[in-house]
């Protein structure tokens, strides 16, 4: 119990909420890393996933590469990137994008691929062209899977952005690593709780998006 009260004390202490290195600043940094990485990953993975799912081309190669990429140790990738380009935002971004691309890519591909084939066939029969078929018929039906991929990527990115602090950057990971170095476990656990809260908020946001964006006609028992 004194762990919990320690965390509570740390989280509610006014000193921790102000100034340079305070919780608001660290949270903003953390969000910046995560959102930039997620956006970059989406820009890469969404079009690629849609294209592969729609045409079926390169599917085997890309899916297997993505699955292998899921096994990439993020800490390793980060340190490798630092070794190659030096300390800075770039290696963190590289590691987080490498983490976020596979779930978005694979889910988008699977979502489009598993659309009932009569749907694009009917769209084609009604006179839609390739891009129209994709955007008006396939994407709406595949949307639950696509959003699920984005949600997984978001949660993982936010929770992993913690390691930015390992290479001297900011973010909520600062509390964790500084706390570890100084053996201040209240600070370590408090930082972890904040990261978890951000990740859960992201999960909630995407669940909300699913409820509002997905047509009731294709909503499945996805949560």
């Amino acid at each position: 119990m004194n762990i919990l009260s320690g965390i509570f004390d740390w989280l509610t202490s006014a000193d921790n909420w102000s100034g340079a290195g305070g919780i608001p600043q660290r949270m903003l940094e953390h969000l910046t890393y995560s959102v930039v990485a997620l956006a970059l990953a989406a820009v890469i993975a969404l079009p690629l996933g849609l294209w592969i799912g729609h045409t079926g081309r390169l599917a085997f190669l890309v899916v297997n590469l993505s699955n292998a990429a899921r096994a990439l140790p993020t800490v390793g990738v980060l340190i490798l990137a630092v070794a190659l380009v030096g300390i800075g935002f770039t290696p963190v971004l590289l590691a987080l994008v490498a983490l976020a691309v596979p779930p978005i890519l694979v889910n988008t591909y699977e979502g489009v691929r598993s659309v009932d084939p009569t749907v694009p066939a009917a769209a084609k029969g009604m006179g839609m062209r390739g891009p129209q078929i994709l955007l008006r018929a396939e994407v709406p039906v595949a949307l639950p899977a696509i959003l699920l991929g984005l949600r997984t990527a978001a949660v993982q990115t936010i929770s992993t952005a913690t390691i930015a602090a390992l290479v001297s950057l900011g973010g909520l990971g600062r509390f964790v690593f500084d706390g570890l170095a100084r053996s201040e476990y209240d600070q370590v656990a408090g930082g972890a709780v904040l990261v978890a809260a951000l990740a859960i908020a992201a999960e909630g946001l995407f669940t909300l998006l699913m409820i509002t964006l997905v047509s009731p006609g294709v909503r499945r028992r996805s949560t």
Binding site: I3, T162, V176, V188, V195
Partner: peptide
């Protein structure tokens, strides 16, 4: 389980370190 999954692994490691 969704909440559990959202907790950063490093945080869980560290949290358990205390236990």
């Amino acid at each position: 389980t969704s909440v559990l999954y959202a907790v950063p692994s490093l945080a869980l490691f560290v949290f358990l370190l205390g236990v």
